[in-house]
């Protein structure tokens, strides 16, 4: 008899976990709240992934294909775990979907519920939603994905674009003190794409620190040295309406120590990652810990970042904190290995 393992969340981490378990011969129940697999990258139609600019479909599409064609994976679309109980070393879960509820016993569980993009509308100073030409990175990703990269206000190509880093991150005011890790890299990636698309459109990045860690740094160098993307040190304090249908970014140039108010055709807010409402929900439902940042808390952040505090329940991907897609995929595999070991041991 083969093992039964529950994977909650069909994003990069959950997909990879499910695929790996399936290859081991495990029966996988993959519970996805949306009507499609692929998580945020699919939902917001990410076009190219950093660091090598490969089409997102090469990665996400491939994972979905493997999951959908894997014989041992049962995907529950538009569904959720509505009830969850421990049953000795095993777990009884009720999976609720449009077609009704199903109760099953699982040997172990992988939580891969992912993250939510910070909603920049929550930080009024950025005037997101107020000005059409203020968008955020997920909007830009979608616009690029749909090949519709123009100024939302008038449909014309922009001549001057600002990228604003650390929106909703590293900001006690909005309640998020952590760094979202990928927004810097995503922003330089988008600036490059933009410059390739509109060579005569100027790109400026307003930053406090640029955190393109590891080899992502290559993209940052490329943005500056090959695409003349200009970085300006200073966080933007407010965005107001400017002359000729522009939006004005007001900030302090901390390197020259002086105020600036620069009009732009378009502003892209690098909104960060949050645990989202699903994190506290899954935390209370499964009885696993939530950290002070609103993400799920690993048992030991260094030694076992893929284990929850509850034996048999494992964590993977951005549900434990902001991370790049590649890291999520890696964690999916790590969690799969651990969930499998647990299941086999307690058979």
């Amino acid at each position: 008899m083969s093992e039964n393992i529950l994977v909650i969340g069909g994003g990069p981490a959950g997909l990879n976990a499910a695929v790996m378990l399936s290859e081991l011969g495990v029966n996988v129940a993959l519970v996805e709240r949306d009507s499609f697999l692929g998580g945020n990258p699919k939902k917001f139609k990410y076009k190219f992934l950093f660091p090598d600019m490969q089409p997102a479909d090469n990665v996400i599409g491939e994972l979905i294909k493997r999951a959908e064609s894997g014989g041992n994976i049962k995907v529950y679309y538009s569904s959720e775990v509505s009830d969850f109980k421990e049953n000795g070393k095993k777990f009884d879960a009720v999976i609720k979907s449009a077609s009704g509820s199903e109760t099953k016993t699982f040997d172990s569980v992988i939580v891969a519920t992912g993250f939510e993009h910070f909603d920049p509308a929550r930080d009024a100073k950025y005037s997101y939603q107020l000005f059409d030409d203020v968008i955020d990175i997920k909007d830009l990703e979608r616009m690029m994905g749909e090949n519709n990269f123009v100024r939302p206000s008038n449909g014309k190509p922009p001549k001057k674009v600002a990228f604003i880093l650390c929106v909703g991150s590293r900001d006690r005011h909005v309640g998020n003190q952590y760094c979202s890790r990928v927004c810097c890299t995503v922003s330089v990636k988008q600036a490059i794409e933009m410059r390739e698309h509109f060579p005569d459109c100027e790109a400026y990045i307003f930053y406090m620190d640029i955190r393109t860690y590891g080899f992502f740094e290559d993209l940052y160098w490329k943005a500056m040295e090959e695409h003349d993307v200009q970085i300006v040190k200073g966080r933007i304090a407010e965005i107001t309406s400017g002359p000729d249908n522009t939006v004005v970014c007001k900030g302090e140039d901390t390197l020259l120590r002086g105020p600036f108010e620069i009009p732009f055709d378009m502003v892209v807010l690098a909104s960060g990652m949050e645990g989202g409402p699903q994190s506290p929900e899954i935390s209370s439902k499964l009885g696993i810990e939530l950290d002070e940042h609103g993400f799920l808390k690993p048992e030991n952040v260094t030694l076992s970042p893929f284990k929850s505090n509850k034996p048999g329940v494992f964590l993977a991907g951005a549900c434990t904190g902001p991370k790049a897609i590649s890291d999520s995929i890696t964690e999916g595999a790590a969690a799969a290995m651990n969930a499998y070991t647990y299941a086999v041991k307690n058979r």
């Binding site: 400026y204 970085i231 040190k233 390197l255 002086g258 105020p259 620069i262 009009p263």
Partner: peptide, 28 residues
Amino acid sequence: RVNSEFDRSFFEEIKKTVAGSRINRCWQ
């Protein structure tokens, strides 16, 4: 004393010179 303009034509001008050709590299 607010600075209300980033004048990029200036940057382009310097980038064309031999001495200033690497101005786009500087990250301060």
